[in-house]
Simulated assay, not measured.
Amino acid sequence: MICPTTPPMVAVAHGSRDPRAATTVTELLRAVRVRRPDVPVLPSFLDHAPPAPGRVLDGLARDGAEHAVVLPLLLTAAYHSNTDIPGVLARVRSRHPRLRLRTAGTLGPHPLLTAALERRLAEADVRPGSPDTAVVVVSAGSSDASANATVAALADRWRSRGWWDTAAAYASAAGPTPAEAVTALREAGAPRVVVASYFLAPGYFTDKVGDAALTAGADAVSAPLGAAPEVAELVVRRYDEALLTAREAAAV
C-alpha cells in the first residue's frame, strides 16, 4: 500500500533510444531521493523507453494510492508538457477517478538551471562570466515559439553575468543552429566561444550539437545538466510547489 500522507512523485522524462538518457534520469532521481527520502520517486518516459507514465500511474492506483504528483523533467514548457502529459493524465483519470493527480511545473526556466549550466561549463574549464568568452546556449528546439523564446531569454539574462556575449541556438525546429551561432560570434570577434548544453541527458541531439559546434570552431562544449545538484534541488522544489498550490486551492 502507498502511504496516503506522502504523495508519490512520478517523474516524466522525454525518453530516448540512447541508454545513456535513462541512466542519467536514474542518477538524477537517486539524488532527489537523497534530498527527500520520505517521497516515493518513480521514473517514467514519454517515448522510446519504459515505463510509460500511464502505466506507472495505473500501478499506483492498483496499489491504493490516493494521490500523486506528476513532475515533468522538461526544461521548457512546450508540446510535451502542454499536450502529451495532459492527455496521459486525462486517460488515467478516466480509468481511476479516485486517484487525485497534481501536475508540477516544468523545470525551466529557473535560476538553478543557469547555475547548473555554469557548473557544467566549469567542469569543461570555462570560468563562469569570463569576459573573453562568448556562450551559445543550445537547446533541442521546438515548434512552439514560446519554448524557443524561453531559451533566448535565458541567454539574454545570462549576458549580465559578465560574458563577452551570449546567444541562443537550437538543435532542431528553429534557428540559428549551433554551428551558425558559433560562426556568428567568431565573426563578431569573440576571443573564445563555448557551448552550454541546455539538455537534461545525453543522446542524439547532444552528440549532434557537440560535433557541429566543435567543427564550427567552438572551444568547448559542456556536458548535459544531468544529475547536477542544482537540478536535483529544482525537482524537489517543483514537487513542493505542486503540493503547496494544491493546499492553497483546497483552502479557498
Rank of each mutant, 00 (worst) to 15 (best):
R237K: 11
G59M: 07
E66S: 08
V235K: 00
R62C: 05
G108A: 08
L89F: 06
V32Y: 00
P178M: 03
L101R: 06
H80I: 00
A223N: 05
R20V: 07
L89K: 11
A174Y: 07
V25K: 00
W158E: 08
G87V: 01
P37W: 02
P224I: 04
V70N: 13
A145W: 15
P53G: 14
A167V: 05
V151P: 15
L46G: 10
R238I: 10
G129I: 08
A77P: 13
V194G: 14
A220G: 05
L71I: 06
T106Y: 09
G189W: 13
A169R: 11
P50Q: 14
A68R: 00
T166D: 03
V209E: 02
F45A: 05
K208S: 03
A249C: 10
G105H: 07
A188K: 02
V138G: 02
V151K: 14
L46K: 13
W158Q: 06
G210R: 12
D18T: 00
G141P: 01
D84H: 12
S44R: 08
A149H: 14
A181V: 10
R93C: 03
G162E: 04
A90D: 11
G15Y: 06
R100A: 15
T103R: 13
A22R: 06
P111F: 02
P191F: 07
P109V: 09
D240P: 00
L121V: 12
E123C: 15
E118A: 13
V193R: 05
A116F: 10
L74K: 01
A232E: 01
S16M: 04
V236Y: 01
T76F: 15
L73I: 09
P51W: 03
P8F: 03
L234K: 09
V236N: 04
V25W: 00
